[in-house]
Design a protein around this nucleic acid. Sequence first.
DNA 1: TGAAGACATGTCCATCTGTACATGTCCAAG
DNA 2: CTTGGACATGTACAGATGGACATGTCTTCA
Lengths: 189, 189
Amino acid sequence: MSLRHGLLGLLAEGPASGYDLARRFQEALGSVWPAQHPRIYAELARLADGGLIEVDSHGPRGRKAYRITDDGLAEVKRWLAAGEVDHTFRVETLLRAYFFWLMEPETLRAHLRAERAFYEETAGTLRAYAGAKDRGEWGTGPQARAMRVAIEAGIRVNDALASWARWAEETDPMSSETFGTAPPPEHEA
Amino acid sequence: MSLRHGLLGLLAEGPASGYDLARRFQEALGSVWPAQHPRIYAELARLADGGLIEVDSHGPRGRKAYRITDDGLAEVKRWLAAGEVDHTFRVETLLRAYFFWLMEPETLRAHLRAERAFYEETAGTLRAYAGAKDRGEWGTGPQARAMRVAIEAGIRVNDALASWARWAEETDPMSSETFGTAPPPEHEA
DNA sequence: TGAAGACATGTCCATCTGTACATGTCCAAG
DNA sequence: CTTGGACATGTACAGATGGACATGTCTTCA
């Protein structure tokens, strides 16, 4: 149940409405932790119920901004410090790889090309963000730095998957005659 | 809903019981697509209901092995070819990175050390598997090759996250005075 | 002034997920 | 012969998730 802590973390930066949070989850966290607005509104209500956040202000169009409480801040920090990181992945790309042997060679090649293109593009987008951060365009405060570190992780993971797709395309292991005797891959940069 | 297709994919290799499948999900797929036995039994019942699999044999201790049907095989292949890959990640490590600015420097360093150790160890384990595969110890058939390709992806992703944690430890960006003016990282291998 | 589109919040429901609980069988070691 | 552990299948339930539906407001532009 990390949505709870994700919301608290975002609110630790300052007051925000459910709508704001949904947008930020979509943009910044969407690829690492998807969350739609129904779930967000529900969780905000629960957090407010538990006294971890409270209504900060009412705006136009029924807008309701929440503010984190001392209890809420303590709870995020406790979560961050407590460890117990869930290391499960849940990347469909990897699940599919187990079943490549069921695919036609051409379909597989097309799939790998598409995957590679996707991860290269994503990495490129993230690199552009990182560049902007490095030039200080988004501020140099703690939040901006943390965001930069998170983006770096995204870049490296996407690069890794792009290089994997390229490797799989090139070595074509599903039709290789030499499988079982070929040297292990180089893990090039 | 990829558990459905994960099960079909595994059954495409040959008949298996729910217990077998739960174990294989735990071992091979557990880190990329967790699934407990209750869900697996339920899904098997649904798949059998839909005619995608059927009971192959009854064994001791109530063991019930399923076999994939032609319809089922067609369905996995359709899924694999149809594309529509879900690229969301759901890696808690990345979610947490957005909130590093809330952590005490020492807690953060300890966290990064632990993350790095975890990913290095996982990568090492996978490399050992990959080595065994490359020596042909697990056979050289199509399934073994596909497994090898999947493992390669796991190695690269875990390496990427380990190198990220090392980078974050070394550049210590949360306390860096030079943030905003420092050159971008090298993305070393 | 009227309509389109962004803003903003929510409910409902089907399904997925994880945990705990419940049941029973077979085998091997003591 | 009995007991512990692996094998094997399932139910029940709370909470998470995604998609569809519903409602209403404010702003802008024709």
